[in-house]
Amino acid sequence: MAASPLPTSGTREFIEYVARMLVRSDDDIHLTESVEGNVVVYTLKLPSDEVGRVIGREGRIIRSIRSLLRAAAARQGARIVLEVE
């Protein structure tokens, strides 16, 4: 594989790894990714009753996930966006 500045595979696995620990039924996790320039957008699709487990009270859990993704992306000069729906 050509050297990519984008931290795709590990990042993807990180989001899935964390999501699996947070939700009750880990079969229902669907993660898609799209790349635009140096921005990678991940969309995590969950059953509606599981979304809260990844968002957390007042968004605290998703904020901490995003803050870690930001730190990882900064090393590669990329930007990672994570949406949950």
Binding site: V18, M21, L22, G56, R60, I61, R63, S64, I65, S67, L68, R70, A71, A74, R75
Partner: peptide, 21 residues
């Protein structure tokens, strides 16, 4: 980078680990 400004990223890491487990 992992510590972050005022230790914010480190705080996130600790919070997330506790929540996940």
């Amino acid at each position: 980078l992992l510590i972050g400004r005022h230790g914010e990223t480190l705080a996130s890491l600790q919070f997330l680990l506790n929540t996940c487990l």
